[in-house]
C-alpha cells in the first residue's frame, strides 16, 4: 500500500483499524508498522479521533426517567389505525404483484356491468309507441317545456 492511500483511509475512517475497509486493513497495518511517515499520520488521526469523541451526546438510557417518558409518548401516540382495514381493502398496503388480481377482477366486473347495462339500453320494445313518450314528457317535465 502507498502512503497516499493510507492517508486517505485515515482521513475517511480514522485511526481505529477495525473501521478500515477489511480488504485493505492488513496492508495498512503493515505500512503503519514499517513506515515512519505512516506511523506519524496514524498518530495524528488518533489525536483527531480522540478530540471528536470528546463530543458528548449523553445516552438517553442513562436517564431512565427520560427514556421511559419518551418511549411512553411515542407508544401512546401510536393509536389503533382505523383506516387499516380500509387501506387493505383498497390495496394501499399491497405490492403491485399482490394488487393485480384485484385490479383485473374489478376491470372485468366493470366491463361486464357496462355490457349488461348497454344491452338493456338498446333493447327494442316492439309495443312501444314513440307518441307515448312525447306525451309523457310534456306532462312530467312542464318546466323543461316552458
Amino acid at each position: 500500500m502507498k502512503l497516499g492511500r493510507f492517508s486517505a483511509i485515515l482521513d475517511a475512517y480514522g485511526a481505529a483499524p477495525e473501521r478500515w475497509p477489511a480488504h485493505e486493513r492488513e496492508a495498512a497495518l503493515e505500512l503503519a508498522r514499517s513506515s515512519l511517515p505512516a506511523a506519524r499520520a496514524l498518530s495524528e488521526a488518533h489525536a483527531l479521533d480522540t478530540t471528536l469523541l470528546r463530543m458528548s451526546v449523553p445516552d438517553i438510557e442513562s436517564d431512565p426517567e427520560r427514556f421511559i417518558s419518551l418511549r411512553s409518548a411515542i407508544v401512546s401516540a401510536a393509536q389503533p389505525r382505523i383506516g387499516n382495514w380500509f387501506d387493505r381493502w383498497l390495496g394501499v398496503d399491497l405490492t403491485p404483484s399482490q394488487l393485480w388480481p384485484s385490479v383485473a377482477g374489478l376491470t372485468v366486473a366493470t366491463l361486464l356491468g357496462f355490457a349488461v347495462g348497454l344491452g338493456g339500453l338498446i333493447q327494442i320494445d316492439p309495443d312501444h309507441d314513440a307518441d307515448d313518450v312525447a306525451v309523457l314528457s310534456s306532462i312530467d317535465l312542464p318546466a323543461a317545456s316552458q
Binding site: D59, I60, F67, R71, I74, V75, P80, R81, N84
Partner: peptide
C-alpha cells in the same frame, strides 16, 4: 406492527430508541 400490534411497536421502540435519539 403492520397489523396494528401496539405491543410489538412498544418493543421495537424500546430496542431502538437510544441509538435513534443519539
Amino acid at each position: 406492527i403492520a397489523t396494528g400490534d401496539q405491543f410489538a411497536f412498544a418493543r421495537l421502540v424500546e430496542r431502538h430508541l437510544s441509538r435513534t435519539v443519539g
